[in-house]
């Protein structure tokens, strides 16, 4: 396990190198596209760096980093939703533009983005990064029971929406 010293610049650089791919992978599942995820990831590291001196060594740095990043992503999602409503009003009656980021398996990402961001975050932390419920609870600052209920609600919805694809 890597040990970091709060307030140390070199250690923060190390934290950045170590956790950037995972933080970015989380945010790209929650936000609408790669540029948005990259922007949010950079913003999260900026905020974390400013608070780096106050990070407590007994807390896992990656979980702390994830928490900051998810807070940035939730704020960004709220803004995105406002913008989407505005765009929807503007193009009423016209067909949707195709999603340029859609790959061969766009459905899961689309469904994840359709979930409430906190449910999506729980799914990504649990099933992409392998966090336990306890670790997710610590990361998000919520009780474990809330994590369990969020995961259950999210999976129930995903099963309904993606069930036929899972069967294939």
């Amino acid at each position: 396990m890597v040990s970091y010293r709060p307030g140390n610049k070199e250690d923060f650089d190390q934290l950045y190198r170590t956790t950037y791919p995972r933080i970015f992978a989380t945010l790209v599942m929650i936000l609408k596209d790669r540029p948005a995820a990259e922007d949010a990831t950079q913003e999260a590291f900026l905020r974390a760096f400013r608070a780096w001196k106050s990070w407590k060594e007994d807390a896992p740095a990656e979980a702390w980093m994830h928490r900051i990043a998810l807070n940035v992503a939730f704020t960004k999602r709220r803004r995105e939703q406002f913008q989407e409503v505005g765009m929807l009003v503007l193009r009423l009656g016209r067909p949707d533009d195709p999603d340029p980021t859609a790959g061969t398996h766009p459905d899961l990402r689309q469904e994840l983005r359709a979930l409430p961001p906190k449910q999506a975050a729980a799914i990504v932390l649990r099933h992409l990064h392998g966090y336990s419920n306890r670790e997710i609870a610590l990361t998000l600052g919520i009780p474990e029971r809330t994590v369990a209920s969020r995961l259950a609600a999210a999976k129930a919805r995903l099963k309904v929406r993606l069930g036929d694809r899972v069967e294939r």
Binding site: F12, D13, Y16, R17, Y20, P21, F24, A25, V28, M29, R34, A37, Q42, E43, F45, L46, A48, F49, R50, G103, H105, L108, R109, I123, V124, H127, L128
Partner: peptide, 21 residues
């Protein structure tokens, strides 16, 4: 699916010197 999706979406890891912080 999540891992496949994540692997498709990871690019080169940016250097700390290129970061905003």
């Amino acid at each position: 699916e999540l891992r496949q999706n994540a692997s498709r979406n990871t690019g080169p890891n940016p250097l700390p010197s290129q970061s905003r912080y």
